[in-house]
Amino acid sequence: MELNAVTIGFFIFSVFTLGGGIGVVTTRNLFQGTIWLMVSLFGVAGYFVLLSAPFLAAVQILVYIGAIAILITFAVMLTRSVTRIRERYIRTVPSFVASLALFLVLLFGVTVPIFGEQNPEAIPAFVMTTRDLGVALVDADGYVAPFLLASILLTAAMIGAIFIARDEES
């Protein structure tokens, strides 16, 4: 691996992503945990930039940091004890087994060529622009069906949430 700007960027963002993840699971303070989660998600946005997908990077920040993480902070602050949590997670053995299995599967999938020979040179030097992404989402030959299905699902979920949260008398 040669040392260039992309490689350095990759390592910096990896530190953000993994360090943030470690912060989330080790801190005894729920609010700091959400901040660490945002650091981790920010690192993932950096990966998208390195992969020439600026649209996904911006959406990652907008949706995960701007919306979801802010909602989590709201929820965290409405809980009784935010700092100095004493409860410990007790199901360590199943968690350990599950994460080890996931790690091995990923390692196996990356290193062993199950889906044919991996050849980095074979990937066409084609950079997908934001316009291409937009066209693919509404093109009949592209992903219009999954896109519409996801939209309907989200709308249904939203209406359901409003219905559940509504007062009985109103």
Binding site: M38, A58, V59, I61, L62, I65, A69, I70
Partner: peptide, 10 residues
């Protein structure tokens, strides 16, 4: 612009 604005909220 919209994504950066979310840092202000944060």
């Amino acid at each position: 612009f919209v994504a950066i604005a979310s840092f202000g909220t944060l």
